[in-house]
């Protein structure tokens, strides 16, 4: 029987994973050999979570590991969108426009949203560091803006 979701082409699986929170997307890597790296090619990254003083270290650890794997290799897959969306007490937003170095100069809008409360680890500096890893050129050219 071939008409099963598990038999969908990789490009469609990548699209599916772009609708999942990062944690659910990463966890699909154990489903089968074919799924091992699908999540690393998904065009969108969405990290969400309820952040309090107990979970902040765990979330930080998760994002660092995720970016280590996702951005390793000679040609990491380009990200069309990337969001860090944490449930906290008040919100801040980061918006970046940037060029993508891996897709032959195609212009891609990077939209980064951060609803981040200032807490010891996932404060703005931490989120900016993650954003810088995802979109190095834009961050270094200073086009990042922070709005309340």
């Amino acid at each position: 029987m071939t008409d099963r979701i598990s038999a969908l082409p990789d490009s469609i699986c990548e699209h599916v994973l772009s609708f999942l929170p990062a944690k659910d997307a990463v966890r699909t890597c154990v489903l089968a050999r074919r799924w091992r790296n699908v999540w690393t090619r998904s065009p969108s990254l969405r990290v969400t979570g309820d952040v309090d003083h107990r979970s902040v270290g765990r979330i930080s650890n998760f994002v660092d590991h995720l970016l280590d794997v996702r951005l390793s290799g000679a040609f990491p897959a380009p990200l069309d969108s990337c969001a860090f969306d944490f449930m906290m007490q008040y919100t801040k937003c980061h918006h970046l426009d940037g060029k993508d170095g891996n897709k032959g100069g195609g212009e891609i809008l990077y939209c980064l949203i951060c609803n981040a409360h200032l807490v010891p680890v996932a404060d703005d500096a931490q989120v900016k560091r993650w954003i810088k890893r995802c979109v190095p050129e834009s961050a270094s050219s200073g086009s990042a803006s922070v709005t309340g």
């Binding site: 979701i5 969908l8 599916v16 994973l17 999942l20 659910d24």
Partner: peptide, 11 residues
């Protein structure tokens, strides 16, 4: 349809 499959995976 991609969202539908994502919902089948979530959690």
């Amino acid at each position: 349809v991609a969202k539908k499959v994502a919902d089948m995976i979530k959690g």
